[in-house]
Design a protein around this nucleic acid. Structure first.
Length: 643
RNA sequence: GCCGACGUAGCUCAGGGGUAGAGCAACGGUUUCGUAAACCGUAGGUCGCGGGUUCAAAUCCCGCUGUCGGCUCCA
């Protein structure tokens, strides 16, 4: 007997596989079946069943089954590549979000775009020839390793050596007559046959390293994706295009947002007036929120004597990311890579009492870090950036409530910008400093603070920094993409290195607890992400130009100026477009610039002492008098809503 | 940093051994207009930088630089 997902039971005969079960339930189910979950685990359709198993036969429409399709497609791709390039050696080919890739070592050949087409065509041939994918337990691992080595498949040999104790399996790809055409070391599971592979596309190729280690062999990677239907594939490709349209670098050109310059150097961003306005508004909001929550603002210098970073340990542990020293009066100085030591300097100017704590120092602190040239990316990965950095100095007893306060601030800011998020608690890694007790205490505080406000935290075991357990928050934007978000870290290192203390109510010195946190991360990355999140259409409160006044003819200029003046009076950013262009033309320009509101002014509006409002998305909203317009704008700005 | 691709007018792009082309934008003029592109005209580029091959290089070769896609790393 086996259990089915609907709770019913069904008899099986000895030796039956999931496929046999499917057939006994319904011929139609058998025809559609591509795999199964057995006791919750994804398995091949031809996996033998045991009495008491809970079995779910997977059809293409089951969410889990796409994994089988993509993984099997990866093998078809590898086979295709080896057919076309007999010297190619295969490395690994996992599924990833939205697709899969395979790494190859192809001596004497660099993949080209044309190759991708050829490989795709070869894959189609393989898929259409309907090869069976058969699981095969390796009976003699040593023999198989030798065989791999003889074939030159050194990566497979290395992997097998590693997995020799895990019942390693090959997947044999067989033709109609049961003859094995190709095989690959793989844990599986897979589709029963390749004829399900109908809608796939090779997307791009790039370099990679064996095991991600740049000291090891250089490999060529092909990224691809597969779906059950052509339509799903097309929808996906369409989504990719949509995401491309949101690219902040592309929108920057359209909306005049930022630039970088050869003469200046890569990774150094110039904020143009439009984007600087957005940033300034965000910073004002940021300051307000911090002031409300009892933070003190500080400013610290952009360069400092190397001595500071010797004490902090950054020179030793972070030196590779720091710019080389400049000589000032014979002393080496460094550009600031982190704000923490500066904040500690301020803390340490006085003997602090427990009555002074918590102290919350906040700074929009600009730092410079060396990033390898290949990783720079628009505003999202740069060499000079401004962190919304803060360090909270508190007693161990205050730690939990401080973390709670931070999580509250994070929640409030992220909601304002319309992000949803997920939290991860990263615990003590293998290499760490400080004592286990300190780590446990800090980790507990993080955990409890999250728990007390109902924030679910996935545990990232061993994922902490060497000096701190932390809560990392991942953001999800308007189209569901993931962004690195806020972080809260309990620093177990710097208070020791700088000997940061307070006097307790017992009149003794105690080491202070230092919580490091960033909410927006860096202004560059955050605002760059916001551009994509809003697709360039900033909500009214953030928009560089909030409204354009469009007089129809010269005789309406005076009234247009009056409306503009009234809106400016209430602090709005407006402009009057009096260019000698048609009203259609000027509306089109304002639309393309993503201006939230257009105020069209002609004879009727003059008579009504108002304007005809047009919203960039909602279109013509009719004539409103000036006061109603002001009220409407004020409400929308104050609400910070996005529309 | 590594692998691959790319760099032509402000933008988007065409051309490709015989000394540069379109559309949009800009500028000048005409037009005074009712919710996404009025009309006419003008101007604009040592084809990323440096070197080489050649009678001749934007075009072929080499080096550098930047950008893009990844690897890796991270705010």
């Amino acid at each position: 007997m086996v259990n089915l997902p609907d709770g019913s039971k069904r008899p099986i005969e000895p030796g039956w596989t999931a496929a046999d079960l499917a057939k006994s339930i319904a011929e139609g189910l058998y025809r559609k079946a591509v795999g199964a979950t057995i006791n919750g685990e994804l398995r091949d359709l031809f996996t033998p069943l045991n009495d008491g198993d809970t079995v779910c036969i997977l059809k293409p429409e089951d969410k889990l089954s796409i994994e089988l399709l993509r993984h099997s497609s990866a093998h078809v791709m590898a086979q295709a590549v080896q057919n076309l390039f007999p010297n190619a050696k295969i490395a690994i080919g996992p599924t990833i979000e939205d697709g899969f890739y395979y790494d190859f070592d192809i001596p004497d050949h660099k993949l080209t775009a044309e190759d991708l087409e050829k490989i795709e065509a070869e894959m189609k041939k393989i898929a259409d020839s309907n090869q069976k994918l058969v699981r095969f337990y390796i009976p003699d691992v040593d023999k198989q390793i030798k065989e791999f080595k003889d074939q030159g498949e050194k990566y497979k040999a290395e992997l097998l050596e590693e997995h020799r104790d895990h019942e390693p399996t090959l997947y044999l790809m067989q033709d109609k007559d049961g003859k094995t055409i190709w095989n690959d070391l793989c844990r599986g599971p897979h589709l029963p046959s390749t004829n399900h592979i109908k809608a796939f596309k090779l997307l791009k190729f790039s370099g990679s390293y064996w095991r991600g280690d740049e000291k090891k062999d250089h490999l060529q990677r092909i990224y691809a994706t597969a779906f059950w239907s052509k339509k799903d594939l097309e929808d996906y490709l369409h989504r990719l295009e949509e995401a491309e349209k949101r690219d902040h670098r592309r929108l920057s050109k359209q909306l005049d947002l930022f630039s970088t310059h050869d003469e200046v150097g890569p990774g150094l961003v110039f904020w143009h007036p439009n984007l600087a306005t957005v940033r300034a508004v965000i910073e004002d909001y940021w300051r307000d929120e911090h002031r409300k929550r009892g933070y003190d603002f500080v400013f610290t210098p952009h360069i400092a004597s190397e001595e500071l970073y010797k004490i902090s340990g950054h020179l030793e542990s972070y030196g590779e990311n720091m710019y080389s020293a400049m000589d000032i009066d014979g002393m080496p100085y460094r550009a600031k890579p982190m704000n923490c030591p500066g904040h500690i300097m301020i803390y340490k100017t006085k003997l602090r009492s427990y009555r002074d704590l918590p102290l919350r120092f906040a700074e929009l602190g600009t730092v410079y870090r060396y990033e390898r040239s290949g990783v720079l990316h628009g505003m999202l990965r740069v060499r000079g950036f401004t962190q919304d950095d803060s360090h909270i100095f508190c007693t161990p007893e205050q730690m939990e409530s401080e973390i709670n306060g931070i999580l509250d601030l994070i929640d409030s800011l992220m909601k304002t910008f319309g992000y949803t998020y997920k939290a991860y608690l990263a615990t003590r890694p293998e290499k760490f400093i400080g004592s286990v007790e300190e780590w446990d205490q800090a980790t507990e505080a993080l955990k409890n603070a999250a728990k007390s406000r109902g924030l679910e935290c996935e545990i990232d075991e061993g994922g902490g920094a060497f000096y701190a357990p932390k809560i990392d928050i991942k953001l999800y934007d308007a189209i569901g993409r993931e962004w690195q978000g806020p972080t809260v870290q309990v620093d177990l290192n710097l208070p020791n290195r700088f000997d940061v203390n307070f006097i307790g109510d017992d009149n003794a010195r105690h080491k202070v607890v230092m919580i490091h946190r960033a909410v927006l991360g860096s202004m560059e990355r955050f605002v760059g992400g916001l551009i994509e999140h809003y697709a360039g259409a900033f909500p009214l409160w953030l928009a560089p130009i909030q409204a354009v006044i469009l007089p129809i003819a010269d005789r309406h200029y005076e009234h247009a100026d009056k409306v503009a003046a009234a809106l400016k009076e209430m602090g709005m950013r407006v402009k009057v477009d009096t260019r000698s262009e048609t009203i259609n033309y000027r509306i089109r320009e304002a639309q393309l610039e993503q201006v939230p509101y257009m105020c069209v002014i002609g004879d009727k509006e003059l008579a009504a002492d108002g304007a005809a409002l047009r919203h960039r998305r909602e279109g013509d909203l009719g004539i409103l008098n000036l006061n109603d317009i002001k009220v409407k704008f004020k409400e929308e700005i104050d609400s910070k809503e996005s529309k």
